[in-house]
Design a binder for these strands. Structure first.
Lengths: 203, 203, 203, 203
DNA sequence: CATGAATGAGCGTTCATTCAT
DNA sequence: CATGAATGAACGCTCATTCAT
C-alpha cells in the first residue's frame, strides 16, 4: 500500500520494530529458538544485524516479545469473536474456529504456541507458563458462566478447561503438521471433537 | 558393587550403551536438547566423551534413540496394564494412571514427550510425529473396540482419540509443572476429566 | 546559567569542542581507552554522538588530543610555578608539589599520564613517547642550570632527570592508587624523596 | 633441540600450556591486551583456538597468568643474583643489571611490566598492584638491612625504595623504547644513575 | 574398544563510524 | 552544523566431533 511509505514517516521506529518482530516470528517458527540465527532474522527484516539490538537487548528478549505479541494478537481476536457467541456450543465452535484459522495463518508459529516447554531459559519458560495458565483460567471462567446458565452440568470446570484446551491443541497440531487435510475434513474433525466434548463418549 | 563388575563382563557393550542412554535421558531432561552437552552426558554415564560416539553417530542420533527407548518403555508398561482393563472407563483410568505415574517417575522427560515440536531437526521431528500419530491410532483402535462392544457411541474415533490424548497431555503438564499438587488433587482431577470425557459437558 | 548561554554565542564551536575534550578526559580516565564508548563521551558532553565526529576524526584522535590538552595544562601550570623557584631544592619541591596537586585533581587521568605504553596504536604511542622525552629533556636543562650555578655536582644530567622523574612517577602512583594516605603522609613522603635525591643514600 | 620431542612425551600438557603462555607473552606485548586476538595467540602457539580455552578460562585469565609467569621468572633470577651481592652498591648494580638484561630479552613484555595501569579489569589491576607493592616492600627491606649495617643513612626506606624503583623504570623504558643505544651507553647510564642514588645531587 | 586432548566452525553481541534529515 | 538511527566488521567463547594413542 502507498501508506507504507507514509507510515515510515509517521512512526519509523515502531515500524522497524514491527518488521523485526514479524521477521522473528517467521524465522523462529521455521527454525526454532536455538537454530534461528539473529543474522537471518535481520536479513528477513531487511535491516542490519546491529539494528536488531537497537530494539531488543538480546535474542532471548526478542523471542519473548515475539511470543507475547503473537499471543496477544490471537487472544484479542478470540475475545472479540467470543463476545458474539451465546451458547456454550457456539463458544466452543468459535474457540476452535478462531484457533484453527489462526493456526492456518501462522502455521509457522503454531509449534511454539502449542508446545509448552522451555525454549530458552527459566525466565522465558515462566512467562510462557503463566500465559498458558491464564488460558486455562479464562476457559474455566467461560465454563463457570455456562454452568450458572444451566447450559452444562456442574462439572469441575478446571478439569473441563483442560479437556477442551487439550483437545484443541491436538486437533490443531493435526492441522499444522499434516497439511494435506482438506478444509472439509478439518471442519468435520472440529465438529466431531465438539460433539464429544458436549455429549461424551458413552452410549 | 561386585555385581556391577559382573554385568560389565556379561554384557559390556549393551551395558555401556544403556548407561549412556540413561545418562542422556537424565541430562536432556534437565537441560533440553540444545543446552545439554555431550560431555556432561558422558560424565553422567561415567564413560569417556569419545565412547559416546562409539555407540551413537551424533548427539542428534543419541537424542532420538533416547526418546524412542523411553517411549517404548512407556508403551510397554501401558499395553501390559491395558490388557487387564475390560470396560472403556477402566481403560481410560489405566491410560491416565499409567501416564501420570510415568510422568511422576520421569518428570524430567515429560516436557520433551509432551511437547510435540522439533527439538533438533527435520528428521527427529518426523520420527516424533510418527510416534505421536501411532499413539492416536492406537487409542483410536481401542475406541473402535469399545464401539463394537456398544460400550460407547459410534463417534468419530479419530476425533475422540485426539480429545483423550489432548486432555491427557494438559492434565499431565499440570502435574509436571506445578509440583505442589497433592496426590489426592491429582487423582481427583483425573477422575473429573474422565467423567467429562465419558458423559460430556451438557446437562 | 545565563553566562553559559552567552558563551555558547560568543564561541560556540570551540566551546563545544572543549566540552567534548573535558567529557573525554572524564570518561577515558574512568574507563580507559578501550572500555570508553564514544556514546558515553557524547552523553557526558551533552552533545549528539555524531557531533563528536564533527570535531574529531576518530576515537583515537579524540584520545590523543585529550592527552595533549591535559598534558599542556599540566606543563603550563608547572612552568609558571617553576619560574618562582630559585634553588634546585625549591625546584624539586615545586615539581613534586605541582605534580601531586595535579594528580589529586585528575586522579582519573593519572594512570594514563603515568603509564607510558601504547593505549591504542603506534601513532599515539609515538606522540606520547615524544612528550615523555621532552619532559626528560626539560628537567635535564633545569639541572644543567643548577650545575652551572654550582648548586649541584656536575652529574650526568640526563641520568639525573630520569632518577627524578622516575621517583616522581612512583611517588605519584602511590598517591593515586592508595587513596587512604593522609595529606601529611604525602607531604612527608615527598620531603623524604627529595632529601634522598639531593643527599643520596650513603652515610 | 632434539629433546623438545622428548618433552612432548614426558609432559605434553604443561608443554602446550607453556607454548600458549609464551605465545601470549609475544602477542600481548606486541599488541597490548585489547588489540591482541585470541586466535592470533593460538596461531603463534601453533594450536587451535579452542585449545587455548582448554588451558585458560578466558582471555583475561590467560593475560594474568602470563604476567604472573613472567614476573616470577624475573624475580627468581633477581633474587638468585642479589644473594651474591654484599654491599648496597653491588645490590643496586645487580638490580639494574638483571632488570636491563631481562628487558633486553623480553623487550616485548617491558611495557606491561613497567606500566602499572589496568589492562583489563578490576581483578587484574588488583593483582598487578599487589605485585608492584611487593617489589617496593622487598627493596625497602633490602635497604633496611643496609641501614642496619650502617652502609647507608637512616633514611625513610619506603621513600628510598620508590626513588630506586622509579629510576629503574625510567632508565629501563629508555632502553626499551630507544633501541639505538649502545650497550656502553646503557652501562654508563646505569652507572650514573646509581652514583646519583648513592651520593645525591648536591655538591 | 576406550579415551580425552585438540580442533575450528559458528554465533551472539558490541560499538566505532556513517549519513540522511 | 547537529543529530542519532542504522550498520556490519570484528571478536570472544562454546561445544560437537575427530583421532592418535
Amino acid at each position: 500500500m502507498g501508506c507504507l511509505t507514509m507510515n515510515d514517516h509517521v512512526n519509523p521506529p515502531e515500524n522497524k520494530r514491527l518488521r523485526i518482530i514479524n521477521a522473528a516470528t517467521a524465522v523462529f517458527s521455521r527454525k526454532g529458538f536455538h537454530n534461528a540465527k539473529v543474522e537471518e532474522i535481520a536479513e528477513e527484516a531487511d535491516v542490519g544485524k546491529g539494528t536488531v539490538y537497537e530494539y531488543f537487548n538480546s535474542k532471548k528478549e526478542l523471542f519473548l516479545e515475539m511470543i507475547l505479541y503473537t499471543h496477544d494478537k490471537y487472544q484479542d481476536r478470540l475475545k472479540q469473536k467470543l463476545f458474539e457467541a451465546n451458547t456454550i456450543e457456539e463458544m466452543l465452535k468459535t474457540l476452535f474456529e478462531v484457533t484453527m484459522q489462526f493456526l492456518n495463518q501462522h502455521k509457522e508459529m503454531a509449534l511454539i504456541l502449542l508446545a509448552d516447554h522451555p525454549p530458552a531459559d527459566e525466565e522465558t519458560h515462566r512467562v510462557l507458563m503463566e500465559k498458558e495458565q491464564q488460558k486455562v483460567e479464562e476457559v474455566s471462567k467461560m465454563l463457570d458462566g455456562a454452568v450458572d446458565r444451566k447450559e452444562i452440568r456442574p462439572v469441575n470446570t478446571d478439569a473441563a478447561a483442560r479437556v477442551i484446551l487439550g483437545s484443541l491443541a491436538l486437533t490443531g497440531s493435526q492441522i499444522v503438521f499434516f497439511e494435506n487435510k482438506s478444509e472439509l475434513d478439518c471442519k468435520q474433525l472440529t465438529q466431531d471433537v465438539i460433539d464429544i466434548l458436549l455429549h461424551g463418549l458413552e452410549a
